[in-house]
Write a protein that binds this DNA or RNA. Structure first.
Length: 645
RNA sequence: GCUGACGUAGCUCAAUUUGGAAGAGCGGCUGAUUUGUAAUCAGCAGGUUGCGGGUUCAAGUCCCGCCGUCAGCUCCA
């Protein structure tokens, strides 16, 4: 090959020889003029590049298009939309400082340093100005500059200068211009602003520069964009759907729980119906735990600080712990527990253990209290009083993998029963850690092979583990595709040391057991909050706080209706009688709004025939008149089988 | 914790812009109605406008502090 020529492999596998420095667009034109017009960017091996970017190395190249459904295409679009947003803001607020403006999972944002936070009206003006910029169809021009010139160009932009400092010597510094707006940016971008199609400015909120609470707060504007208007509309519909499912609203409408100012933020009152859901979840899990060799323990809610000093919580976790309770005449203060592990350690340590006893699996459903920062509290999802389905497993090092495997199996069974799909994150050793590399190797290998034995796919969060051990997080997906934190499985090298836990091995020597923290639901607060949103409040029979609403047509039918209710209760089902002095229609409507799975109407005909007129929630079908016994068996079977309909 | 917005009856919201008698619907209670598949009718009760200060002849409305909620940041089960 002659000097100044490059070999590129096209998507169809054919090879072309091109001039060194040819742009992707020129290449596209050589192949097909139509292609050049339609392409929005190109991908050289794994690097997305602008169409105008000179190609200076051989590789595989393919073009990105608006309609290829490729994540990378959306990435380029949203990145460009973020720039259009910044262009608009800069034209309306010429002195606005600019921070970062990346594409994110569902759209993009851009951070600005402005005197006054943006108001909703500002956002409308910005969106309108964006439309002008898109209509003007300004080219995105890329240019590579020397460090000195870049410093010159961004001399008024301290955030960009800071970013510039971090670009290593020898790395390319690129800037992009569209119209009057110039940004330090790696790119790539669409060919021009006119290609930014369907976008929406969503909301604004404060965000620390670089996520650091000690640094200035910038104003972040969130937006999203799509190539297809129908996709944008679908996305906005999904946001609306998420609002409709909000567990805080449903929790009020369905009378599941409340949070009260006089009691304190982040403290959940489980009303009878919400408590029933928790009760069902508990019973389900507890039965399963017994089957799987767990033992239940109960530990105090408060204890002397001695315990938390020993566990290290006082030193490392105190900012999250509620303040000390002073006891008159006692040297030691008391604390309310933020976790259950110290208590379980204490039980393990209370007597000698033989290797024959292991694994020991202690389970406790217990409420813990953590003084979470006020701004992080959110309904049932982030609270200060949290009820974990906690367990600690003590085992020999060679048992770790099997124990992890068993936990994954349990999580799979539980989540499967709820119809929840999930994925795993494996978090490995962080830079700051305790324990030798050999111990970490062994621990991480155990986690990995347990996951792989179950043939589960997982993502690795390198360096994401706690300083005391690696972990697996289970993230479940709800009905509209959102991820929720569920189970967490956490190896711990520290606590067994701190509590000097040991067992006597077959060699008659003392050994240190391995210890695993794990929760399956995580916390009842968060899990139930998630379930409310997943089911949009329409719980399947086995979870529904009230499974059947029994409605007599009129006063004279109270007794037969009450008999139906009692028969349901006798069958272990949850039934309510609605004999209010309201019309039948009214009570049916109310039952539907309360999302009761079944309404059973008892009229004269039913009372005489020993039947009920059954109305299934949400079903289009007409009511079904069936014998009471048959109806009860149907509901009981649905309850027993934990059917998800 | 930080930034901003918000806080009116049990709930959802008017009245706040421009200071001048706190309102509606739903829900609740009482009565009438006895109902056949998504709202029967009437009457009544219900508010120290989150809490505490301040400005003013007058504050739901303007100012300050606190509490709480929301959107995020950070953090996390």
């Amino acid at each position: 090959m002659s000097a100044g020529k490059l070999k590129l492999v096209l998507q169809d596998g054919s090879e072309v020889e091109v001039e060194h420095g040819i742009s992707a667009r020129e290449l596209a034109e050589q192949v097909d003029g139509d292609l050049a017009a339609k392409a929005i960017a190109a991908k050289l091996d794994d690097e997305i590049i602008d169409l105008t970017r000179p190609i200076t190395r051989p590789g595989k190249i393919r073009f990105l298009f608006e309609d290829d459904g490729d994540e990378d295409s959306l990435y380029v679009l949203r990145h460009s939309a973020a720039h259009v947003l910044a262009t608009a803001v800069r034209s309306l607020w010429p002195n606005a400082g600019i921070g970062f403006g990346p594409p994110i999972a569902e759209g993009f944002y851009y951070d600005f340093d402005v005197e006054q936070p943006f108001t909703p009206e500002d956002l409308e003006r910005i969106e309108a100005r964006m439309a002008e910029i898109v209509a003007a169809d300004q080219d995105f021009e890329r240019r590579e500059v020397e460090r000195g010139e870049a410093q010159q160009l961004f001399s008024d932009d301290p955030y960009k200068l800071e970013r510039l400092e971090e670009i290593e010597e020898g790395d390319v510094i690129s800037v992009y211009r569209d119209g009057d707006f110039l940004d330090l940016c790696r790119g790539p971008h669409l060919p021009s602003t006119g290609r930014v199609g369907n976008y929406k400015v969503l909301h604004a909120a404060g965000a620390y520069w670089r996520g650091d609470e000690r640094r200035p707060m910038l104003q972040r504007i969130y937006g999203t964009s799509f190539f297809e208007n129908s996709h944008l509309e679908e996305h906005l519909r999904r946001l609306e759907e998420a609002r409709r499912r909000d567990h805080r609203l449903l929790g009020k409408e369905l009378d599941l729980f409340s949070i009260q100012e006089d009691v304190g933020p982040g403290l959940i009152h489980w009303h009878p119906k919400g408590a029933m859901i928790q009760f069902v979840l508990r019973r389900f899990l507890e039965d399963e735990l017994l089957r799987r060799g767990y033992e239940f323990v109960y530990t105090p809610h408060i204890s002397r600080e001695t315990l938390f000093r020993r566990s290290g919580h006082l030193q490392g976790y105190s900012e999250v712990m509620f303040p000390a309770m002073e006891m008159e005449g006692e040297k030691e203060n008391y604390r309310v527990k933020p976790m259950n592990c110290p208590g379980h350690m204490a039980i393990y340590a209370s007597r000698q253990r033989s290797y024959r006893d292991l694994p020991v699996r202690y389970a406790e459903i217990a409420s813990d209290y953590r003084n979470e920062k006020s701004g992080t509290l959110h309904g049932m999802l982030r609270v200060r009083g949290l009820t974990m389905d906690d367990a600690h497993i003590f085992c020999r090092p060679d048992q770790v993998e099997d124990e992890i495997y068993a936990m994954l199996d349990l999580a799979d069974y539980i989540y499967g029963t709820f119809g929840l799909r999930y994925r795993l994150d494996l978090s490995t050793r962080p830079a700051k850690r305790i324990g030798s590399d050999e111990v970490w190797d062994e621990a991480e290998d155990a986690l990995r092979s347990a996951v792989e034995r179950r043939e589960l796919t997982y993502a690795v969060d390198v360096g994401g583990g706690a300083f005391y051990g690696p972990k697996i997080d289970v993230k479940f997906l709800d009905a509209i595709g959102r991820e929720w934190q569920g189970s967490t499985i956490q190896l711990d090298f520290v606590l067994p040391e701190k509590f000097d836990l040991n067992y006597v091995g077959a060699d008659n020597q003392k050994h240190r057991p391995a210890m695993i923290h794990r929760a399956i639901y995580g916390t009842f607060e968060r899990f139930v909050g998630g379930l409310i949103e997943h089911f949009a409040g329409a719980f399947p029979v086995w979870l529904a706080p009230v499974q059947v609403g029994v409605i007599p047509v009129s006063d004279e039918l109270d007794e037969p209706a009450r008999a139906v209710q009692q028969a349901l209760l006798d069958a272990g089902l949850r039934a309510e009688l609605d004999n209010r002095s309201e019309t039948l229609s009214y009570r049916i409507r109310d039952g539907e709004l309360q999302k009761l799975p079944y309404l059973a109407v008892v009229g004269k005909r039913e009372a005489d025939g020993g039947t009920v007129a059954v109305r299934r929630r949400g079903a289009d079908q007409k009511q079904l008149v069936i014998p009471v016994a048959q109806f009860i068996e149907q509901v009981a079977e649905e309850d027993r089988s934990r059917a998800l309909i």
